[in-house]
Design a protein around this nucleic acid. Sequence first.
DNA 1: TAATCGTGGCT
DNA 2: TAGCCAAGATT
Length: 378
Amino acid sequence: MQPRQIQKKLLSWFARHGRDLPWRRTRDPYRIWVSEIMLQQTQVATVVPYYRRWLRRFPSVQSLARANTEAVLKQWEGLGYYRRARNLHAAAREVVRRHGGRLPAERAALLALPGIGRYTAGAILSIAFGRPEPVVDGNVARVLARLFGIRQNVKSARVQRRLWKLAGGLVGVAEGMPSKSEPVFKHVRRSDQKQAWKFVAWRGKEHPGILNQSLMELGATVCTPRRPRCDACPLHTFCVALRRGATARLPNIGRRAPSRLVRQRALLIWRDGRVLIRRRPSDGLLCGFWEFPKRKPGGMQCLNGRRVATVRHSVMSQRIVVEAFDGHWLGGEPPRQGRRSRWRWVRPADLERLPLIVAHRKVLGHAYRSPSAQSSAA
DNA sequence: TAATCGTGGCT
DNA sequence: TAGCCAAGATT
């Protein structure tokens, strides 16, 4: 099978079936960058509202660079993998300092920025700058593993090298493949004006970015992990896995670590209409986020009685059951560490403005409706 | 190389 | 429901 044929099939399919997503309506490298970071290990439907809100709050590299960490975390709250937000923030400052506020269009310079690895560099270069750089994400790996019938574990270094090479061949890096390519519009039926409008921004140029997105889109919407819709696949005539009846077994992926059940407490300790929270340590899981204490702070007396909420949650490989208790402060002070205390008494309204761990945000939703919390807060 | 880092949706 | 999965990067 020829890369050329695959290219044409993919682009034609994408022009007709590609989803109209917010980051496909722009060529602004900053916006493409933000979308790519948010989309790491995160589904499109989850990202869309965060993406819009983020760009309202931080419309440019400069505005992001000026923001403080807590504001950045707050915008990212609920999206997970918070290191991404910290890295994006740090990288924005570096772009302002070292690149005049413009994202560099060079591979090495991009890779030097925190949070930008091989995939993201390729995505930015191809989508925003129109360079013929390949990308291999989970979608592309799955599509290619099935298309070429690759049986070895896709996470192995050997297969990874092969996947990048294959993706490079498709995007036009390989020998014999033109880096300049045909306009995607050529493949769109003229009668279908509504669809044609979607990709007008890329007419005649930046084909590599479209091709990469086509591969990813195919993996996301057709060549899905379970029950792929092979009848709707533009590449089904080329697919080795389909021919062998092996789509269910490919790609070959290693097993995940089993999750374990963890029980936790969240203490809502009230004083004068304020509740006690603490900031998590500056490294490790959910670092820098605020949360309710899990046990009574040392030296502090409080009455914690009723359970006001039980919330199920999961973090990494833990399934967590959080039991929230409502309590009153009776005396003593929470421990202080350093000049900027990790402890704070806050009004419920202030909790809206702080980055709070999602499990406790859920607790709040229940606890606020509890009569005893209301009376404590009053 | 393998572990770490979140969360929500789906089956 | 318990497990699997999603546009990865970093150490």
